[in-house]
Each structure stands twice: as C-alpha cells, then as structure tokens.
Design a binder for these strands. Structure first.
Lengths: 337, 337
DNA sequence: TTGTAGGCGTTATCAG
DNA sequence: CTGATAACGCCTACAA
C-alpha cells in the first residue's frame, strides 16, 4: 500500500494539498512555475495516489466485471483478452467471474460484482440462461451492462453477437457449392440462441438452393463435445439415411464427427465433407484439418468493452446491438469448388 | 452504485449509524433485540454497503492482481480459473493482466496493479523475464507476491511450480521402458526455467539408464509452436542421426513433430515414438493421440492464490516453495511396455 | 448497550 | 493563482 499522502508532501513543500492535487491532475487554476516545481520534486518522493480514496470520493470504482461460463474455452479467453485490452488504456480494470454454465453461479457472480461496486458488467450468459431476470438488480442499481455471444435476438438491451445465421448460411452454401446436397446438421443446446441461429442459417441455405430439409439428418446434443460428435455421427452412419456432408455446431463436435467417419473408413471429404464452427485450435490440428467459421472472439470482447464504457460515460441510455461478421475458413475437410 | 447509506437507514430507524454497522458486522456490543430489529428492517431497504468506502477506510482493496503471458493459453486460463475459485470464497476479487511475453508489459502490468492498490500479486513471468528487478516496487511497497510456473529454482521468494524435472524424467523413462534409446529432445526457450528443468530431467533419465547423451539429437526453439515442431523434426529427419523417439518441450511442438513424421511416412509409434508436455486439448485430438505430462494447472493457480492470501494475512514474512506433482498420460503416440 | 466524534486521502467549492 | 474547509461512507475509540 502507498504511504506518502498529499498532505505529507504538502507540508514538505510548504504548499497546500489542494495545490499539489491541482498540479498532479493538470488543473488549469495553477501557475506554470508552481506546477513544474511540484512535479519535479514529487518524482523523487515515490508517491502513488491512493486509488481507493480517489474512487471512493468519485463514487466509482473504475472496475468492470466480466462473467463468462468458462475462462478456459478458447473463445472466452480470447474475448476476455480483447476486453481487457480495450479497458486498460481507459484505466479500467476488470474482474473476471466464471459461471461454469450454472445459472445460480451466474446470478451469484452478478451479485458479487454489484457488491464490489463495479462501474459496469459484461456478461456472456450460460447455456442454461433462458431469461434475464437475474439482471434486474443491475437495472435497479442503474449499473450499465452489455451482453455478448449467447443471447437471443429478441433481447433489446446492449449486446454484441457474432453473425451465427450468416456464418452458418455461408458454410452450408459452401458445402452445396462443392457438390453436397445431403447435408446433416448436429445441432447444439436447445436453449442456446447461437445454436438456434446456426440451425436457421443451415435451413435457410438449403431452402435457398431448393434442397428439401430432411429432419432425419438433423440431430441434437446438449453437450458440445468431441464425444457427442462421435456418438451422433455413429448414429447417422448406422441409420439408413444417406448423407454427403456434416455441419456441426462447433469444432469440438466436428472433430468427433471426423473421428467417427475415419473409424468407419469413410473418406473425408470424398465421401463426406465436414464443417465446424469457431475456428478453435483443434480445427487446424485435426487431420484432415477442418473447414470452419471464424468468430472474431478478441474483437467481440473488445467491442463489448468499448460499448460498455461508452454506456458508462454517457449515463447508459442508448442501447445498441452490434453484430460481428464471421469468416469462412476453408481447409481439408471439405471439397474444392 | 449503491445509494442507501448507513446514515440514512439510521435516521429512518431512529438509531445511530454505528449501531447499524454493529448489527451488520456481527459485533458483540449490541443487544440481540436491536440487532434483530435492524436486520429485519434492513432487508427491505435494499442496502449494499459501499465497498469503496470500506476498503478505503480499511486501507486495503480486497483485490488480487494476476499477471500471465497470455490468457488464452490453456494452462494459464485454467490456472486463473483455479486462482479465482480460491479467491472468491475469501471475498477477494482478481484483476487479470496479460504480458504477451513482453517484459515491458509485464513491468507495466505490475505497476498498474500497484496503482490499483491491489493487496497482492500473482505473476507467471514471461519467457523473456530473466531477472526480477521489476518486482522491486512490490518489495518497496511491501505488497506480497507469489510467482508460479516460469521461475528459476534459485529464486527464493514464494513460488508454486510444477515438477518439470520429474515430469520430464518420468516421460523419458517411459520412452526408454518401451524400448527407445535414441531419444531426441526439442528444447524450449533458452531463458525459460521450465525448459531448462525439462532438459535436465531428460538428461537425467538418459544417464540413469546409461544411455549416452547425443547433442545432435537435441534441438532448440524459442517459439514453442506447431510450426517449430514441424520444422525441427524435418531437420532431424534430414540429418543423418538416427532416432526412435522425440520428447518435445510442449504438446504444440509435439503436434508439429507428429505432422512432420506422418508426412515423411514414418510410423508412430512403431518407428518413432512422440511425447509432449502439458496435456493440452491438442494432445487428445491429434492422431495418433499424444502421450504427455499433465500439469495440474487449476491446482497450481489455486495453490498460488492460497499461498498469497496466507501471506497477506500473516504480513508476508514466510516464503514457501510449493512443487506440484505431474502425471504421465499415456496415449497412442508411444509404444506399450 | 448505545451514541458521538473523528479521521482515512482526495478533491470541489468557495474565499482570499 | 492559492489556501482552507468540508464532504464522500464507514468504522474505531471513547464517552455516556
């Protein structure tokens, strides 16, 4: 903790604490000479202002809370990294909380952050979060917040989302363009808005190309894991339905799909193309490497933070929805045009 | 921000602010009846104590700073997660900073954290950090700190490290046990203490088994990436030195090695076994899946946080070194015993 | 058992 | 241009 206080410096220099405060804070009502004299001497004094005192007096904390389901998911760690990078230059610090996809923990995190007097909160709701009632305390206390990633398009507060619909449409269109027309989809958690939008994108692409939607080619998993991809793909293989491509809700699931196909000696992409979503590290490591959709995680975090800080500064009246573009990353798991 | 203050509640209830404070903080010098009466009424008043004020007065922030090279590395995100989990029940929050493996940013982060009046700091120094001079401000200001992961064993402050030496020894011994005796090693950054300790473990295992160390089989990379592993393994293949195993400094590098071997139609593990270090997600995705050493990342972060908070509470006199055990994870990239 | 006074470090306000 | 004063919300010490 810092020791030297303005008062102490003041008594050493023979001026008032107020004057030193003015010198330190670039206030106009101080003569150039006094200011320079003070700043020169203060350098040697090893003074660090007491932020607690400053924030206390200013009735703010300069701290932003971030709540994510799991820090160690690549998407979230990148988003956090982007958010921090946006916050630091504006002298905001960030407190991170994990909800572990448990609604109660999400709620607790929000309450803890309120108790910490954060100036604002960024939340990526868990898969289990279907309504936003636990955000009410934030509204009550007038604490601005921004939501990112998993959030339904009906919600009309400030949010940053990636364009799941278009991303899915884009990658399914690519599958179609490369000659596939019996495209299976492994869908994600039912409550997940991202999963819903990707499903819609998938459907839309098929319709646009006059391909009939075959519900037997759509399967679903609550857990988006390699294991689930493996299991569901095995299911598809064992069913009588023919398919020439799989579009999986995430890269993890797609990796499971690739493993299942390989074990059944089904060639990728000659017999079946595989596409994922996220562009996680996995996608370049798996063989064949995975065609996928890149979400600008870092950028999403950055944007959410900027949006929030803007909201804090302006009093938080305007609500904005920012939709981030996705990018198609073509690799070996799909055919060439 | 909270609005209701003790004073306001006091005037409503017709008691003094002090009494309410006592009720809220479980102080002994208050009658049971008054306490209950106050607590009952206060529930409806939607009071949140002003943490800024409390911390300001108590001359502490209840915030711990954490500095890591990169949040999105699995090891660090898990360590952070562990640290947060240990901190929250003790009502500490955490501020995360990224050094991006840049010494100057590490320094800046530490200074920013000091300026934020954190109660203590946990640092995982970057690869580029060879001395700890930039920690002096912490010592000067008497802010306790704990270091984890990348730190030389000579440093005698508080630290938490995983047992790289034994981990490396263990996995090399396993390679030897499965019939390898021309074991190559891809070494990491020169300044990295982990890399040094893993190299020592490798050497030790060879010596113990009377296998002569062949320096031509030891190569080195500053960047521990898939690409580096690929490049260096190609180098090994093109050299005249024979080898029957590769022990890579990290899983990323090992993945590169696997890719290089496969492209050269060298069978894994029949012709060459491959071993990594970290047990990152990659290791189970790559084919063949990778034998590796698991570092208890979550546990390391948790331990570091507990150590730090202990130090904060006791005034920070005792320095401890905690060495965490590693675990050998056997997969398909190595032969069976 | 309860209340009063004072101060933590900073800065806005007003007076000089 | 500079200084004195008060106040932010809470809690400790002391008084009643």
């Amino acid at each position: 903790m810092s020791n030297v206080t303005l008062k102490e410096i003041a008594s050493v220099l023979g001026v008032s604490a107020t004057t030193i405060s003015r010198a330190l804070n670039d206030k106009p009502d101080i003569s150039k000479e006094t200011k320079e004299r003070i700043l020169n001497i203060i350098k040697d004094l090893n003074y660090t202002p007491n932020t607690s005192a400053i924030n206390f007096r200013a009735k703010r904390s300069k701290i932003i809370g971030i709540v994510v389901p799991k820090i160690s998911y690549y998407f979230f760690s990148e988003a956090i990294s982007g958010a921090i990078e946006a916050a630091n230059p504006l002298s905001y610090s960030t407190i991170i909380c994990e909800s572990q996809h448990v609604l109660k923990k999400e709620q607790e995190s929000i309450n803890n952050l309120i108790a910490s007097n954060v100036d604002g909160i960024i939340v990526s709701p868990s898969n289990k979060t279907s309504n936003l009632e636990h955000f009410n305390p934030l509204k009550d206390k007038n604490i601005p917040f921004v939501i990112f990633d998993k959030i339904s398009s009906e919600y009309n507060g400030s949010k940053v989302i990636s364009d799941d619909f278009k991303g899915a449409e884009k990658i399914v269109q690519y599958l179609i363009d490369t000659g596939c027309n019996k495209i299976a989809h492994i869908q994600g958690a039912k409550a997940s808005s991202n999963a819903k939008r990707r499903l819609e994108g998938y459907r839309h692409a098929l319709k646009k190309n006059n391909i009939k939607i075959n519900n037997k080619l759509i399967c679903q998993t609550e857990q988006v894991t390699v294991e689930a991809g493996l299991r569901l793909t095995n299911g598809l293989i064992n069913s009588k339905e023919k398919f020439d491509a799989i579009f999986a809700i995430t890269d993890e699931v797609a990796v499971g799909a690739i493993k299942a196909l390989k074990r059944n000696n089904i060639r990728i992409p000659q017999d079946v193309s595989v596409a994922g979503f996220s562009n996680s590290i996995l996608s370049s490591v798996i063989e064949p490497s995975l065609t996928t959709v890149q979400q600008p995680a870092h950028n999403i975090g950055e944007t959410a933070m900027k949006l929030l800080i803007d909201k804090i500064k302006t009093g938080g009246f305007q609500d904005k929805t920012i939709i981030m573009n996705t990018e198609l990353i073509i690799r070996e798991s799909t055919k060439n045009i």
